[in-house]
Design a protein around this nucleic acid. Sequence first.
DNA 1: TCCGCTATCACATTTGAAGTGG
DNA 2: ACCACTTCAAATGTGATAGCGG
Length: 468
Amino acid sequence: MQPILDLQPTFNIPTSSSTAGNPEVYPLSNVSVSLENAVLWRSFHDVGTEMIITKPGRRMFPHCKFNVTGLLPYVKYIMMVDLVPVDSFRYKWNKDKWEVAGKAEPQPPCRTYLHPDSPALGSHWMKQTVSFLKMKLTNNTLDQHGHIILHSMHRYNPRLHVVQADDLFSMRWSIFQIFTFPEMSFTAVTAYQNTKITKLKIDHNPFAKGFRDDGTNTKRNLHIVVLEMPFMCPGSHWKCCCFPADPHEQSYEDYDEDQCPSGASNEKENMPVKEERYSPWRSQRDPSQGSSSVSPVGSDGQDPVFSNEQMVPASTSYQSYRPQEFLKTPSPPNLGNSMVRPTLQPRGSDLATVPEHQTSRPLTVMAVPSTSSSHITMTPQEHGNAVNVTRPSMLPHPLYTPYGSEQALGQWSNPGPSQYPPPPPPPHHMNGEYSGAPVTHSYPPSNVVDWGQHTLFSFPCWRSNPRP
DNA sequence: TCCGCTATCACATTTGAAGTGG
DNA sequence: ACCACTTCAAATGTGATAGCGG
């Protein structure tokens, strides 16, 4: 393994002029991303999406597919997906609903799946759906295949990173944006808990065709019982208002193919708003969010989730998970309709520059040269609701990183138990619920192939590198 | 020891890419 | 070059079973 100190010189850390004066850095203000199969995702989300994770790795279904527009055709971009914990709880399936079963386990190494086409021209990304079909999820913390490592019975939300960079090694210093879709959140499981999810998977996943009612699979035993009880959100803040008086109203058949055809259907885009009420994770969703397209510019939606997500590029990748937690977890006592601002405030102070009013969905984060700016500048005119952030090392506050640089580097070369040191005490800006932290790292591995295993833009790592 | 929960494995089935031959 | 067909790896949920903790 190459020591991280040795790696550092191999990367082109820009000088104050190399980036600021880099004519190839363009604003991402017009980038817009829509979820390709949003209707299908919503169908799952309304029931409470579950994703199987296995030792060898399991693909997601529905798949992560995005339509990206607004890119500059002749500028290269990198597309990545990572999965961040929705909250800091572990869940259990109790008969017909998810319940909190305790605090989350310390997060495994947070990996980022790099789209195999990366880097590619904007025209390439825009001419077709950006599909992360081959991305796999695993519960094997020792995985060396680059799969996304998750904990079973924990909730996660995928994020799409759009990075303007000519190559993998320069993207650290590039502009990037993060897009999230609340309907993509899911619970990682080793076996399906909710029979409605099983039904949906079978109905829509071609590989599970044999398990359909008209299939020939003799092992099929899926005359699924219509659940008598609606699914309850683990969060008590919604359980009182999410379901129809008649629990049978949302019967199992409601998720028939007719209602949830594979792929996005324009008809289904107009699914009645009432479906929102059935979502086990209703708090993630804004009923007014009719589209899954997000854009930093012209985004009218005031989805509270999005407005939180825009806080993502705080000082650490893990911290970025926190906003959603505040929205969805049942226990934080401070949760209220106005919970977002107060709970996020401390983190904002880490950046010291994140505008409080952020309401945008995606983030624009730009690493700027050390001398160009000592604070984040917000330019709504140019960037909509995006956020420009200084390079972490320039941040006014020390950034939290639980691991030494050697450990961080070890993540991509030889993962092992050593990646899980005891959780450090929570930093000052995090609340007491914090029970773990992902491994973060500063520098890309020497092996490009391994890029897909790493959390990128883990700001603390940038700083974790010793500086003279 | 028992029980409940979770993880793992083999299995049957399907898909789709790759290979082959006309 | 194109098409049809075959082969086979990969993907999928099921159901049984193992492992673990209370």
